[in-house]
């Protein structure tokens, strides 16, 4: 199913977050959509959570790296 409404509302909600680095809010929304899409990929709960962790850690590491650069 299309997550059009989720993307729309998540985009609005992202405006409430701190923009830790430029484009951070958009990255958070994309990360959420990536995480939600894991549900249709046939993973077990454990596998899904592992991958969710990977998505979050990857985003955080990118943000941390950007911050270090700045």
């Amino acid at each position: 199913m299309s997550n059009k409404r989720i993307v729309e509302v998540a985009g609005q909600q992202a405006q409430l977050l701190d923009e830790r680095t430029p484009g951070y809010r958009g990255d958070v929304v994309r990360a959420v959509i990536d995480i939600l899409q894991l549900q249709g990929a046939g993973h077990s709960e454990k596998g899904r959570r592992e991958r969710t962790g990977n998505v979050i850690e990857a985003l955080a590491d990118r943000v941390a790296a950007k911050k270090r650069q700045d």
């Binding site: 998540a10 909600q13 409430l16 977050l17 958070v28 979050i56 955080a60 590491d61 911050k67």
Partner: peptide
């Protein structure tokens, strides 16, 4: 790095809860 991971995870959680 650890603190950032935790904070980013919290941001994602807040975003999904709000949505």
């Amino acid at each position: 790095g650890l603190a950032m991971r935790r904070d980013v995870a919290q941001d994602l959680l807040d975003l999904v809860k709000g949505t």
